[in-house]
């Protein structure tokens, strides 16, 4: 091939093509997530505790992927809405398509008190970005009962409480020791 002959740099030939891909998906909530959403409206976080290994999954998945056993309503457990920041990242937004944030923001993993259950990609509120740290104690900021919505809860958003919890606010308690969480996977 002789691309040079057909691709001069200084002409007005067409060299790029835009294609805007958009797809819509509609699906019912699966039963365990439906139950999770209903409980969120009541101000409760629920999970399934694996009967074999004891790990808690939030929202419930209907199985434990570690033990490969199914979990049911009988394995349901109500979780605390207080916890500890066990991981976080500061995102400095680049204005790509779909990015609505303009200032640096935090996405944190919050491990709930009393077990392993962890909510990922959570917003933190009332705390400057540079003060966020592993070990920080936080509590859920629930929307008032009448203002809660589960419209954004889907089978795809494991761990989200969007529409019901605005984020997590530092409680002012002394930090939990960070070494307890660093280098460990959360679920």
């Amino acid at each position: 091939m002789t691309p040079a002959a057909t691709e001069p740099d200084d002409d007005n030939s067409v060299k790029m093509m835009d294609y805007f891909m958009q797809l819509e998906y509609r699906e019912p909530l699966c039963p365990v997530v439906r139950r999770y959403a209903d409980q969120l409206l009541e101000g409760r976080l629920i999970g399934h505790q694996c009967p074999s290994c004891g790990l808690v999954y939030l929202p419930p998945r209907g199985y434990c992927p570690i033990c490969v056993v199914e979990t049911t309503d009988a394995d349901e457990t109500v979780l605390s809405d207080r916890g500890t920041v066990t991981n976080y990242t500061v995102v400095t937004p680049v204005q790509y398509y779909g990015q609505h944030e303009t200032e640096p923001f935090v996405r944190a993993s919050v491990t709930l008190d009393g077990g392993n259950a962890t909510m990922n990609l959570q917003d933190l509120v009332d705390v400057p970005v540079d003060e966020v740290r592993v070990g920080m104690r936080v509590a859920a900021v629930w929307k008032p009962k009448g203002e809660r919505s589960v419209a954004d809860i889907s089978n795809r958003s494991w761990g989200s409480a969007e529409g019901c919890i605005d984020g997590w606010r530092p409680t002012g308690e002394p930090d939990a020791p960070a070494e307890q969480f660093l280098g460990k996977a959360t679920f």
Partner: peptide
């Protein structure tokens, strides 16, 4: 036509059954 379960959820028993019928361990 429209499964209520998620894809991993309806896969779960299918894989378990295939392994069980094969008479092997996971």
């Amino acid at each position: 036509r429209r499964a209520e379960l998620t894809e991993p959820q309806f896969l779960f028993p299918v894989i378990s059954e295939a392994i069980e019928r094969a008479n092997v361990e996971r």
